[in-house]
Design a protein around this nucleic acid. Sequence first.
DNA 1: TCGATGCATCGACACTCGTTGATGTTATGG
DNA 2: CCATAACATCAACGAGTGTCGATGCATCGA
Lengths: 116, 116
Amino acid sequence: MAKRVATVEPTDQCCPSLLASPLDSTQAAELAGGFMALADPVRLRVLSILAAAPDGEVCVCEFVGPLCKSQPTISHHLKILSEAGLVVGDRRGKWVWYSLNRERLADLQGALQPVG
Amino acid sequence: MAKRVATVEPTDQCCPSLLASPLDSTQAAELAGGFMALADPVRLRVLSILAAAPDGEVCVCEFVGPLCKSQPTISHHLKILSEAGLVVGDRRGKWVWYSLNRERLADLQGALQPVG
DNA sequence: TCGATGCATCGACACTCGTTGATGTTATGG
DNA sequence: CCATAACATCAACGAGTGTCGATGCATCGA
């Protein structure tokens, strides 16, 4: 039971915390890039659908209907999410299956840590 | 060891979790509005400066120098952060002191909760 | 090999966003 | 009352973003 809270190493993450100390321009730009990927309703819904998928992955064509967007638009958003490191795509045959990168999501969450 | 994951009540927050279930358009738009406020380097630096301030509040004029932006630009970003509920301004005489709304920040963080 | 399917890319459009100088508003001090 | 200072708002510009139809590319089935 001892050292239950001391086992993790939160300082090991890539994203600096917002609340630890003032960010410089470089750190701020990098963090802003991550949040920019989250700053769109369609992309948030893509992430939530991925998170709720039983197998943890969803085919591109399965986004088009529920999100009421054209296929190029979905592809566009998936590219942005992919470049932000939030999702990864895996081509299998004609289909591309996307899944969540929960570590990256946790990184962004850590940057918002309300003071440990 | 039983019911170890059932102790917390994440549904008590205002922001729906990204990872709980698929978001509808309204929820996604609201969440996206919050992250949009975070999706700018200047605004992230504003927040980090506020978080690191000893008194928890910073005068508008104190942002202009460190951030290398004009006064109208700083005022513009503070307005966006204010409308997003992330900061609050308090006018005292000629000065306006801004402080962090850590609850709102925690709400957005909660939406990124990587599954309890 | 050929047509069909799934996905990415391109081109173009309307719209939003970040920025700044100029101006307006509010409060202080003489 | 007037000058000054701090902050907000306005007008305008360039740059970026979301969207979609058209097109290209790869894969599968016949």
